[in-house]
Simulated scan of single mutants.
Amino acid sequence: MSELATLARPYAAAVFKRAKETKSTAKWSQSLAFMSAVLSDKEISVVVDNPKVTKERLSALMLDICQGQVDGESANFLKLLVQNNRLTLLPFIAEIFEAYKAEDEGYIDVEVITAYPFSKEEKQKFASKLEKTLSKKVHMNATVDKSLIGGVLVRAGDRVIDGSIKGQLQQLAKRL
Rank of each mutant, 00 (worst) to 15 (best):
Q170I: 10
D64I: 00
R155C: 07
T22Y: 04
Q69A: 12
P10L: 11
S164G: 09
K23G: 06
A13E: 13
A13W: 00
Q124P: 01
V160D: 01
E3M: 11
Y11L: 10
G68H: 05
N76Y: 03
N76F: 02
N76L: 12
F16L: 10
E131F: 00
F97W: 06
F16Y: 12
K146D: 12
F77G: 10
V46H: 06
E122C: 02
N141I: 12
I149P: 01
L58M: 08
R57D: 15
G167S: 07
S164I: 07
C66A: 15
E111Q: 15
P117L: 05
T54V: 05
M35Q: 05
F97A: 11
F118M: 12
A99D: 12
A60I: 07
K20N: 06
L4K: 14
D145F: 01
T6I: 14
G68N: 10
A102Y: 04
V154F: 03
A75L: 05
F34G: 07
N76E: 13
T143A: 12
L81V: 09
A94S: 14
I113A: 04
Q83H: 08
Y116M: 11
Q171L: 13
A142V: 10
R9G: 00
K52Q: 07
F118Y: 10
Q30Y: 00
K123N: 11
Q30V: 00
E103I: 00
N141K: 15
Q171P: 00
S128T: 13
L134C: 02
L7D: 03
E122W: 02
R57F: 01
V15M: 08
K125S: 11
V46E: 10
E43M: 09
I161G: 05
V160H: 04
E98S: 15
K79W: 01
T143S: 15
P91K: 05
Q69P: 03
I149Y: 08
K136Q: 11
G68R: 10
V112C: 05
N76R: 15
A142P: 02
K132I: 07
